[in-house]
Each structure stands twice: as structure tokens, then as C-alpha cells.
Design a protein around this nucleic acid. Structure first.
Length: 376
RNA sequence: CCGGAGAUGGCGGAGCGGUCAAUCGCACCUGACUGUAAAUCAGGCAGCCUUAGGCUUUCGGAGGUUCGAAUCCUUCUCUCCGGA
């Protein structure tokens, strides 16, 4: 069975678990207490952003990332590989940004500062933060890149994983307590390469095996609003079966509640995505079936269980005079204190207090969703 | 009363003879978002037709010049600035 726990130095993670992203050291527009009160018990933060904005040496000096955040529960750090990938593919990306076997070199668009991130430096930075779970520097690729590029990407990805593990062992060889280490399976939309990537990483051996890249098919023009593709169920299913059953299977960036449910049914048990928090800020709320504007979900072909929920576009005019709470079945701070009409107003005037409430609600929805999955 | 400037779509504000149903911003409407460089982005925003596109009515009012006017002329109304 998937239902299980993952032991960390900051307590057990009940699986399957969803971890919101505190990318810059904060779950945007909420406090960690808000997140905790919404049911969040573990979080992700990002090596690269923390390093750039404040420095991991500083975090080390101050006593570690948990102490700095005043968050007593598990923290997983992402390697920075995705962030570089994301930067390179965004409009802010500098032409000098480059990925080679050595590592990723890139220019910070805010400061103009040049940085080099290597598998070793990423591990060192994460070690400075002292999280519960670490991630090797990985090399994502867009699904429909050329075969040569995909092959090269996987080749580098494996080499980096190996080097990261060596560095990890070097840092922790004499220490009793060490974090868990995860590697990231790449290969884009290519089943053969995904298999190769998984086999090579399994051979090196890690505590977690992560699904990397974009969990969507036809992701030809990521971030450009064209051909975004659909959730790539076949690939997630395929990759899950390449990972040994006793390992943690972490589907990075997944996903919509129904995508998470699907992945859980197919072996994945750890998830993170920005969807609930980002969508919250855009007035896009997750609510129980029958409550919102349109239904999403699917019926499991394994158990016949239905995984449906609704989306509520709070900004739309239809909520202008709606004095009901967002979701009467929800007991979060948002639903027990404000009306749809008022919350709509807050979101429309770009009020942070509104973002906070919608984020609290979406996090609660995700927490409940995971709890339902755990119950089976 | 005299002199000067100006009146443009919900608002601000371009355009100054044809490529203008009219740049752009705000507001408004709809949608998207999947390891957050996204409090972002895309589309719509005179009316009608099923799209390419087509048709009808718009740039303070009335009239005129011109093949053609938001753009030029006359006049009326109103606003702002300066002087009596």
C-alpha cells in the first residue's frame, strides 16, 4: 500500500503528503502559522532563492532553516535546478545563462550578479540550511526538445546526481543525523529516456526518486500560453513503476487535486505545487463538488471512486452580491469569517489580506484532499 | 466684454485629410495557471452577422469643402487660462 509515513528529524510525514512551496522562504501571502492552521504539516523551500536573497551561510549561522522560519515540522529543499531552468525559459532570462556538465551558470535578473550552481555547491548550500530532505541538482528539459538535447540532458542529469551524492556522503560521513536525499528522474516526454534516467539513478541509490520536468504533455512552449498540454498521466504512471516500492516517490510540481489523486493511485506519495497558492492570489478557489462554477476531476478506473471538485472564479460578477462563505462545508478562517462578495472585493483591489484568506482556503482544501486520500 | 486654448468611446489621454471603429493606460468582462523569477498572463471591451470577413451607426451640436473628415472651414453651445 501507499499509505505510510516518512520519518524525518522533524517528525513523521503522513503519506501521501502535499507540501506547499515557500520558494523565497515564505508561502506567499500567508504566515507559517496560517499554513499550519490550514492543515499544512510539511513545506518545500528553494536553495537558490534563499542563497541569493539572504545566503545559506547566514542561515547556518542563525541555526538552520527550521529555526529561521520558526517551523518545527519537516522541510524539503529543492536544488535550484528547476529555478535555473525556469529562469532560462522566462523573459527575464539572460542570454549568457548556460547549462553545461560543470553546472548552471546564470545571471540574476534583479542584481545582474553572475552565479554558478554546481551539484556540489547545491548540496553544500542545502547542507547549510539543514533541511530534512534534500534534492540533487537536476537538469530538466522541455518535453519536445530534440532527441540529441534530451539525451544530453539525461546524461548530465545522471552525472550531476552522482556528484551530488558523493558530496552528500562527504559532508555527512561522520555525522549521526543526516537528511534524506532525493534524485530527479528526467527525460521529458521520452519513455525510453525516462526509463534510462530512472535506472541510472536507482543504480546510484537515493532515499527519494522524484518525477522531474513538466508533468504535462506537449509542453513545447512552457510559460508562453501555447500548447500547455494536459497532465501526462501515462508518463507519471510509467515512471512510478520504474522506482522501487520501498522508496519515496515524489511527483514534483504535481498538481491539480485530481492529478494528485491519480498519481497517488499509481504509487506517488509526495507532492508539491504552487497551484493552490498562486491560484488563490488570482481569485481561483478550490471548493467541494457542487459549490463552484465548474467541476473537474475523474473517476478512478481502479476503484471506481470519483475524484471531483469544483473551481470558483471569485473575481467574476456572479459573486458580487453573494453573501455566502466560499464553501459552507469548509471550516477554514476564510470560510468562517468572510463572504464571497467581500472576498471578491478584496481580491479585485489586490488586497494582501484577501490573498491571505484565499490562500488559507486553498491550502485547507488541499489538506483535506490529502486526508481523504489517506483514508482511501 | 476682449485675447488664448480646448471639447475624442466608462475615465484619462493619442490621433490632426484616406492604412481610424479610432494607439495607449485605467476600469470593466471572460479565461488560463502544475518542483512560484507569475499580487502574473491571455483574450474581449459601439452594434449586428457563424469565422476569414462583412455591414450599420460613432470622435460636443448644426452646416460646409473634398472622391474621402475625428482630422480643414463657418457657426452655435460648453469648459479652462490670461486681461479688462
Amino acid at each position: 500500500m501507499n499509505s505510510n509515513v516518512l520519518k524525518t528529524k522533524h517528525g513523521e510525514i503522513q503519506l501521501p503528503a502535499f507540501m506547499p512551496d515557500a520558494t523565497y522562504g515564505s508561502i506567499r501571502s500567508t504566515s507559517f502559522k496560517d499554513a499550519y492552521d490550514s492543515g499544512v504539516r510539511e513545506i518545500v523551500t528553494t536553495t537558490l532563492h534563499i542563497e541569493q536573497k539572504i545566503g545559506s551561510e547566514y542561515i547556518k549561522k542563525i541555526g538552520g532553516i527550521n529555526k529561521f522560519f520558526n517551523w518545527e515540522r519537516p522541510i524539503l529543499t529543492d536544488s535550484g535546478g528547476w529555478q535555473v531552468f525556469s529562469l532560462i525559459n522566462s523573459e527575464k532570462g539572460n542570454k549568457k545563462n548556460k547549462i553545461s556538465e560543470i553546472g548552471c551558470s546564470f545571471v540574476d535578473p534583479d542584481t545582474g550578479e553572475f552565479s554558478l550552481l554546481t551539484p556540489e555547491s547545491s548540496i553544500q548550500i542545502q547542507a547549510n540550511l539543514s533541511p530534512d530532505i534534500m534534492t540533487v541538482l537536476d537538469n530538466p528539459i522541455i518535453g519536445k526538445s530534440s532527441l540529441a538535447k534530451r539525451k544530453e540532458s539525461v546524461r548530465i542529469n545522471t552525472i550531476w546526481a552522482k556528484r551530488a551524492k558523493t558530496k552528500f556522503k562527504e559532508i555527512y560521513q561522520s555525522k549521526e543525523e543526516k537528511p534524506l536525499l532525493g534524485s530527479v528522474i528526467q527525460g521529458g516526454d521520452d519513455f525510453v529516456l525516462r526509463k534510462q534516467s530512472a535506472e541510472e539513478l536507482v543504480e546510484i541509490d537515493f532515499d527519494l526518486f522524484n518525477f522531474g520536468g513538466i508533468p504535462l504533455n506537449e509542453g513545447t512552449s512552457w510559460k508562453n500560453f501555447v500548447d500547455k498540454g494536459n497532465f501526462y498521466r501515462e508518463m507519471l504512471h510509467f515512471v512510478s513503476e520504474l522506482i522501487p516500492e520501498n522508496k519515496i516517490k515524489y511527483a514534483m510540481g504535481v498538481g491539480q487535486p485530481d492529478d494528485i489523486a491519480f498519481c497517488y493511485e499509481h504509487g506517488w506519495n509526495l507532492f508539491d505545487t504552487v497551484l493552490p497558492t498562486r491560484n488563490a492570489r488570482h481569485g481561483y478557489l478550490y471548493v467541494n463538488k457542487g459549490v463552484g462554477d465548474k467541476s473537474k476531476g475523474y473517476i478512478s478506473d481502479k476503484t471506481n471512486k470519483d475524484y471531483f471538485y469544483d473551481i470558483m472564479h471569485l473575481r467574476t460578477e456572479r459573486y458580487k452580491f453573494d453573501d455566502k462563505p466560499v464553501d459552507e462545508n469548509c471550516n477554514c478562517e476564510c470560510c468562517s469569517t468572510v463572504s464571497r462578495a467581500y472576498l471578491r472585493h478584496l481580491i479585485r483591489i489586490n488586497e494582501p489580506a484577501g490573498y491571505r484568506l484565499t490562500t488559507i482556503h486553498n491550502l485547507r482544501f488541499y489538506s483535506n484532499w490529502m486526508e481523504e486520500l489517506r483514508k482511501g
